Computed example of a mutant assay.
Amino acid sequence: MINSDDLAFFQMIASNPSLAETARTLNVTPPTVTQRLQTLEQKLQLKLVERHARRISLTEEGALLAQKGKLILTDLADLIDDLDRQKKDISGCLRVLSPFSFGQQYIAPLLAEFQSLYPNLTIELELSDIPNWSVGKSWDVIIYIGELRDSSLTLHHIAPNGRFLCASPSYLEKHGFPSHPDDLRDHQCIALRENAEDVTMWRFSNSRTNEQSAIRITPKLASNDSRVAKQWALQGLGIIHRSEWDLTKEIKEGRLVRLLPDYRLPSANIVALTGTNHRAQTLRTAKFLEMLKHELGAKPWYD
């Protein structure tokens, strides 16, 4: 069986007046060309070239091979070009699952920008604070914030994200500042129910002594919507435990005050989850991951 290399070699023979000229074109010795031609003729069990004193001529079979082979090589080159263009084209549908508030503020604008860069692309964005892992394969990218206990998906780090304990100035004026995590038992706390986490167990680590504390709060108010929980805190209704990306603006404006600064809460880094088959990862997914890391890795909530 001959292959594309054989066809290309014979095209070179057919386009030169002699085997010696073919050897010079290929930058090999004349015996190398002669031996390879003999091998090709043996494969086909056909005589392809008539050898004369200073030139060659193609047999009828050789002329047919040259003619059809040229068409095959042209079609093959066109096919490779088409595949390369397809590989480089960002198209199809990009399906993204994201937490609700973060998705509204950061993922939705980035997806709109991404689609404008690649007009042949369509976007599907679903927002949910309780992602359904059982249907993870239906998403190209899952944005996740929080403690990731177990996942068979591939994790891509997007941005660091700490958690803060905050309350409004009006709440603190009325109830005072906690000085230790244990003091939270005497305060009104607001719980945000998301990601199926144990949201009433607040864990702390002293940044100086490494003292570990775990406090079980009894929330006066609880919601599965982060916007509602933050609004309650802004209204002076209690202390909130929330990601820095969501509280930084209010802290900078003085509408919320960070509490227990000597204590660290478990981080909730922002990550993207994709399927485990790297070869199957589409170019649109890879390019969107690049955009996420570039745009969110700089922590734009501090701008």
Score class of each variant (00 low, 15 high):
I142P: 08
L117M: 10
L111M: 06
H157E: 10
T154R: 15
Y144P: 07
S57D: 14
R54P: 01
D89V: 12
Y106C: 04
R55P: 02
R149G: 15
E50M: 14
Q105M: 11
T74G: 03
W139E: 02
F114Q: 10
R95W: 02
I123C: 05
A63Q: 06
H52P: 04
L79C: 07
L76N: 13
V96E: 08
D84K: 13
L125V: 07
Y106A: 05
L148E: 04
I142C: 05
A108H: 00
N132E: 08
K68F: 05
I142R: 01
S98R: 09
A66F: 09
E124I: 15
H156D: 10
I90D: 09
Y144D: 01
L65P: 05
G103A: 05
V96I: 11
R85H: 15
L58Q: 00
L65D: 03
L125E: 01
F100V: 15
P99L: 03
D89N: 11
L83P: 06
I143V: 09
F102C: 04
L71S: 11
G146W: 03
V135W: 13
Y118R: 01
K68M: 04
D81P: 08
S152A: 13
E113Y: 06
R54T: 03
A66D: 10
D75I: 09
S116M: 14
R54N: 09
P99A: 01
V135A: 06
Y144C: 07
R85Y: 13
L110R: 03
Y118M: 03
E60H: 10
P119M: 05
E124K: 14
I107N: 01
S98K: 12
E124T: 15
T74K: 10
A63P: 02
P119C: 02
D81V: 10
S138P: 08
V135Y: 14
D82A: 15
S116P: 06
I80S: 13
A77Q: 06
L155N: 12
D78F: 14
V141I: 13
L58S: 04
A63D: 03
T154Q: 10
P119V: 01
R85E: 13
V96T: 09
L111T: 05
L121S: 00
L76V: 12
L71A: 09
G146T: 06
D89W: 01
R55S: 03
L65K: 04
L110V: 00
S138G: 07
E126Q: 13
A63E: 09
Q105F: 11
K87V: 11
S138F: 15
L64C: 00
I123Y: 00
R95E: 08
W139C: 00
E126G: 11
P109N: 04
E50D: 15
H52K: 14
T59W: 08
L110F: 02
T122A: 05
T74D: 07
L110Y: 06
Q67F: 12
I130A: 14
T122P: 03
D129E: 02
